[in-house]
């Protein structure tokens, strides 16, 4: 599948955030400045996460796949983020199961853009210990980007 939705320019390595809300604020600012989302995005992201948390208890490390409704997206994207230190993230379909999440994939999907295959490919591969360790140890944005687009299944 086409890996062009993985936007190299949106990769954040060792991003410094205090908590989830701080992450949403900083990430929304970046996405808005680069023209990927509308002004309404930040509030939409926060509201949606409150109602429907997006932490996934994948092994070996939990991940998070925050996303807002399609109407707030201008250009589809996947923003891959590695935090400097993990933050608490609530597990999907719960309101009280928390995980320390360091790797986040912010999904900016619009209906009918092949996101189903994309999400499946990501979630399946992010359970590969070797890949996860390479992502955690990548030294540069280039390295991080290469690791992701080299996932089997991407063109």
């Amino acid at each position: 599948m086409d890996s062009s939705m993985i936007i190299k320019d949106l990769i954040q390595l060792d991003m410094q955030v205090e908590n989830q809300n701080d992450f949403f604020a900083k990430m929304s600012e970046i996405l808005f400045a680069k023209g990927f989302v509308k002004e309404t995005y930040y509030q939409a992201l926060v509201t949606r996460e409150e109602a429907y948390p997006t932490g996934l208890p994948t092994q070996p490390y939990p991940i998070a796949i925050p996303h807002a409704d399609a109407v707030h997206i201008i250009t589809p994207f996947v923003a891959a983020v590695r935090l400097a230190k993990p933050i608490a993230w609530c597990e999907m379909a719960t309101s009280d199961v928390w995980h320390d999440v360091q790797l986040i994939f912010v999904l900016g999907f619009i209906k009918g853009d092949g996101h189903v295959e994309m999400l499946q490919l990501l979630v399946d591969n992010l359970q590969d210990q070797d890949l996860m360790d390479r992502l955690l140890n990548a030294k540069t944005v280039d390295e991080y980007y290469q690791e992701i687009i080299n996932i089997k299944g991407f063109d």
């Binding site: 409704d69 999907f109 996101h115």
Partner: peptide, 11 residues
């Protein structure tokens, strides 16, 4: 069903 109907539920 999921909250937005565009990501997780279709996947």
């Amino acid at each position: 069903a999921c909250g937005s109907g565009v990501a997780t539920s279709q996947t």
